[in-house]
Amino acid sequence: MIEPSEKIEEIEIRLLLEALYVRYHYDFRNYAMASVRRRLRQAREQMGFSTISALQERVLHDEAMLPRLLGYLTVQVSEMFRDPGYFRAIREKVVPHLKTYPSLKIWIAGCSGGEELYSLAILFREEGLEDRTIFYATDINQDALQIAEAGVYDLDRIQLFTENHRRSGGKSSLSDYYTADYGRVSFDKTLRERVVFSDHSLVTDAVFGEMHLISCRNVMIYFDRPLQDKAVGLFRDSLTRKGFLGIGAKESLRFCSHADAFKEFVREEKIYQSTAK
């Protein structure tokens, strides 16, 4: 029997994801298929393989190929103060609650290149909360974590970051926090003195603390529904009583089996509050 080529490709994708898991413990098996398929097609084409099985053979035997493939599989798009209304809502609605705690733990889950981490660190400094806070910035992609830890970005992105910061209700000038040199800007290292960077997977790793705020934006859009359920369950179990969860502007907990464990706190900015005991 002749299989239509799309069916064969589907098999190849499943096998490749299984191989990545067994060989390297990177688990993309429950990622949303449509976008995984698209990115693997790109990887196959741009890395010069005729089939996804050929790509699989190579990555199984040649560890050096792994970071390149991971670069395709993990999407790293962010900007500082992306969706300024979200950060304004954190500042105006969530911060007053956070100010009632003597110490704070904040988790940026899927921190990518660190843009959101620095946004929150600056916001917390502006609001006088920084000294009592520990930030946990996690990602599965080591390259991304290194970028986050370095805090260096292209100068041509700063105009957008600055505008976003202003629209988010920023109380200082963004330029107070970086120095520019050779077309790049370096963010002040004191912003990361209270940050723990860590390799953590929402798929395979466990709860690691009692968080007051978890920000996980545009990460779960790459998960299928069972995996989204699992991640949201992990957030529920990682939040302190009445802790906060922020997700991406076009994400929703409506389709998730743990929806009952949260109530909408700032509906239009997708900030939820845990109702679990």
Binding site: M33, A34, S35, R38, R39, I221, Y222, D224, R225, K250
Partner: peptide
């Protein structure tokens, strides 16, 4: 956001380039 159709009759979003 990119908009994609997933196999289980749902829609998905993506921030890919």
């Amino acid at each position: 956001y990119h908009l994609l159709v997933e196999g289980n009759n749902t829609l998905g979003l993506s921030s890919e380039d």
